[in-house]
């Protein structure tokens, strides 16, 4: 327990919290990098996902993108970008954005493609045009899955950003990495606790946000009984990850 005491001593020291490399500044940098990366990824993935899902195509593309990015180590992309001349947080943002694309893309595509055809027929019968259907029927029904994708992406990027400390990015990971470098394991432990806490808090907050943005009708329908989701069987490696990534019963799969 000596180390734990040391970790709490580190956390209790006000000097570690303020200043340019204090916990507060590093957390701010961490969150900022995450937001920029997710926004960047969303700017690419959401329109593409909506287009593909609306056309009911792109299932294979999602699988390919997800599988490739899973096989590519984060560290590899970070070191590649960093040594290609993009130092500091530019490399971090780009690398993290790449890893945020798959959850956003696959969830948007499945969300839109999973809308019941009968519902679409009914909308067409009411005289709705294609864009109107997309805006008033498909998108609201896809909100739970898209929101789950955003949540997965944000938490995943929050978890990836610390690694960038190895290649010179500033984030809460810097606390861990400099602790390892100076062999102060109390500090390492403290940094680990901070990063873990940040991710868990974000996960909780986003779960709440996801509930809030889900239209009430959709939420009630989900409460009455789950709609079957097309193309999400356990035999496919991609949904398996979607299952693993989304801990809550947020309807990512099944």
């Amino acid at each position: 327990m000596d180390l734990l005491t040391e970790a709490f001593a580190w956390l209790n020291d006000p000097l570690n919290w303020t200043g340019r490399n204090g916990v507060l500044a590093l957390t701010a940098a961490h969150v900022q990098v995450t937001l920029v990366a997710v926004l960047l990824a969303a700017a690419v993935a959401l329109p593409a996902g909506v287009a593909l899902g609306h056309a009911r195509r792109g299932g294979t593309l999602g699988v390919v993108v997800a599988n490739t990015t899973r096989a590519l180590p984060t560290l590899a992309l970070l070191t590649l970008l960093a040594s290609a001349g993009l130092f500091g947080n530019t490399a971090t943002v780009l690398a993290c954005a790449v890893f945020a694309v798959p959850p956003l893309l696959t969830n948007t595509v499945t969300g839109l493609a999973g809308v019941d055809r009968d519902v679409l027929d009914a909308a067409r019968g009411l005289g709705m045009s294609g864009p109107r259907r997309l805006w008033l029927v498909e998108l609201p029904l896809a909100v739970p899955l898209v929101a789950a994708g955003v949540r997965t992406a944000v938490v995943q990027v929050l978890a990836t950003v610390p690694l960038a400390a190895l290649v010179g990015g500033r984030s809460l990971g810097s606390v861990v990495v400099s602790g390892f470098a100076t062999q102060r394991y109390g500090q390492v432990l403290a940094g680990g606790l901070l990063v873990a806490a940040l991710c868990l808090v974000a996960e909780g907050l986003l779960a709440l946000a996801q509930r809030t943005v889900t239209p009430r009708g959709v939420r009630e329908a989900a409460g009455r009984g789950r709609r079957p989701r097309r193309g999400l069987t356990a035999a496919d490696p991609v949904p398996a990850v979607a299952t693993a990534r989304g801990p809550g019963s947020n309807g990512i799969t099944r």
């Binding site: 610390p162 990495v177 680990g192 606790l193 991710c199 990534r245």
Partner: peptide, 22 residues
């Protein structure tokens, strides 16, 4: 499954940081 989910949310760097001192 709940414990697994919480543990999975903990980033790898943080997990190594929490394990390494011990």
């Amino acid at each position: 499954v709940g414990t697994a989910g919480v543990l999975y949310t903990v980033p790898s760097l943080a997990l190594f940081a929490l394990l390494a001192p011990y």
